[in-house]
Design a binder for these strands. Sequence first.
DNA 1: TTTTAATCGTTCCAAATGGAACTATCTATT
DNA 2: AATAGATAGTTCCATTTGGAACGATTAAAA
Lengths: 161, 161
Amino acid sequence: MKEENETTTYMQLMLSFAEVQKNMLRIIQQSAAEKELSIPQYSIVMTLFRCSNITQKSIGAQTFLPKSTLSQAVDGLAKEGYVIRKPMEKDRREMCLELSDSGLALAEELHLQEKGLHQLFKTASSQFTERQIKELIAAHRNISASLTKTKRQGAITCSKS
Amino acid sequence: MKEENETTTYMQLMLSFAEVQKNMLRIIQQSAAEKELSIPQYSIVMTLFRCSNITQKSIGAQTFLPKSTLSQAVDGLAKEGYVIRKPMEKDRREMCLELSDSGLALAEELHLQEKGLHQLFKTASSQFTERQIKELIAAHRNISASLTKTKRQGAITCSKS
DNA sequence: TTTTAATCGTTCCAAATGGAACTATCTATT
DNA sequence: AATAGATAGTTCCATTTGGAACGATTAAAA
């Protein structure tokens, strides 16, 4: 009895992550649909909102979207006028992506949306103290680190904030 | 300065969830591909592994997969002989799903797979104490609860274990 | 009882997705 | 400098996905 309880704690932890994940996805889906964006497009816009002027490759590393999906999603965003794509002088294979004014406005709307992920998460976080949140973040980072450990993969960070 | 730090803690927390999520998805994708399953199929098998003899609707509620995707995924699993589908006597609209012997074997393989999600998560969890894990689970549940609060949606639980 | 409304799952099909091959550009080697 | 190899992004296309309409069955209302 007791033994069984213990063996399943890690499963419960895993499931609790899955549950949060499921909710996040649902919320994103709704926000994205409202703005006529696909989920990859939502991710791209929000990634650029956090740190603009980065390459597609960098977005790919952060969002873990396959290049073809990314390329098509960016293409759509560019056609809608949300994103500006210009080749870097330093290396003309790379495309430097940037939010246009309307793209920035869109991102801000999404960020401030009452029922958007950011605001809902802000509310959800308010039940914890700053200290607790930092502990959660640290724990999550350790879990991510452990999950990536076995894999051969470089870490990717945003250029800085 | 200080103010800015505080306003972004919840964003960091959100991103730390996204990061774990990204890793989980990558791992699942790999496991699934190895067994020639789609991701929905992987989810279904693992859900049935945790609690068998449930309806498609119940799986849908737990996995948040759209019914059409679910139906097709289950169909594939049934054709491969992993899942047995039989209508319930009580209500013949509902299909009762159950893992076959080979389905159960498959689920156990996935569960014990060295680089599968379950084992990697078990390893990742081992850096924490039981108490810490339980705190994490509780925190995650509270976050999920908060994220669902605004939405009109019933809670779904597995029949029990 | 008959009619109406709701619900579970399936089918259909337009759209999104993602692996593989390709193009253009850059880097390293001979 | 010329050649080979690597890399960012694009294009192609087969597969997957998921919303909407549908069929079958049950529950509720008339």
